[in-house]
């Protein structure tokens, strides 16, 4: 299958290794990856902060860039949710953008959706000999409703020791500009999340959203907790021949 990668601005700028892992994984599974270079950002930052006009412009760009794609992969749960859940709120009902966005939305997927629902695979032949716990980010949980998809993928990874995370459904406290505007509450939430992560004994925290991982991981690193944070794609891309480096 030909898959258009929407890398997302955060991954593009700060986590290219997640993008490279996605490319490697999908090619290994026999699919073609294209990267439309006109892409930039879904507009979530502006939308969530109350800057609707700027968000609309970015939505137009996204829809135009990906209009012809058979399937769009956004390796960030909240960006996929932005397109599917919030674009309808952003567009004037019945407008051209509204119709185009609605037409495109069902073809926009998070990584676990793409693999499980579209490509029909739960065992991607990965090898990751580490103790891992999974944080099901808020937008993955409540907007995309990923349910057990990421767990099904992780359970099939060879060598993995998957640990359950206490209070997993609770927000980590990132929330985009929330982390800056309400830094104290955000830090208090991260402290509790970090405590729960540490309690699992895992050496790796995994999620489908690098923004949340940037926040939890930044907290863990500040504490010198010795827990690495990796995107689901990096675990799934890891093989015995080419194991992921932490």
């Amino acid at each position: 299958m030909r898959i258009a990668l929407f890398i997302t601005c955060v991954n593009d700028t700060l986590y290219p290794r997640t993008g490279r892992a996605v490319v490697r994984l999908l090619r290994r599974l026999g699919h073609e990856v294209v990267f439309p270079e006109a892409q930039t950002c879904c507009g979530q930052l502006h939308y969530n902060t109350g800057y609707r006009r700027e968000a609309q412009k970015l939505a137009v760009r996204f829809v135009e860039t990906f209009a012809d794609a058979d399937a769009v992969l956004a390796p960030s749960g909240s960006c996929a949710a932005m397109v599917r859940d919030n674009y309808p709120r952003l567009c004037a009902p019945g407008s051209r953008l509204d119709r185009a966005a609605a037409e495109l939305a069902p073809r926009v997927h998070d990584l676990s959706e793409l693999l499980v629902d579209v490509l029909g695979v739960t065992d991607v032949g990965a090898y990751f000999p580490h103790t891992v716990t999974y944080h099901p980010t808020c937008h993955g949980l409540r907007l995309l409703k990923l349910r057990d998809r990421p767990y099904r993928l992780l359970r099939n990874v060879r060598g993995i020791d998957l640990r359950e995370l206490e209070g997993s459904a609770e927000c980590c406290g990132f929330g985009g500009t929330f982390a800056m505007k309400n830094a104290d509450v955000s830090a208090a939430m991260a402290a509790d999340k970090a405590r729960n992560v540490a309690a699992t004994g895992a050496e790796v925290l995994c999620a489908v959203d690098n923004s949340c991982l940037m926040h939890i991981g930044g907290t863990l690193r500040r504490q010198r907790a010795g827990v690495a944070t990796v995107h689901l794609a990096e675990i799934l891309a890891s093989t015995e021949q080419e194991p992921a480096r932490l």
Partner: peptide, 24 residues
Amino acid sequence: AWTDTRDIPEIPEESFRAWWRREG
């Protein structure tokens, strides 16, 4: 507001799009 309680992520040598153009 960020760095008081959190480390910032390491900025990579190149962005994804730079890598893609180069060899991806």
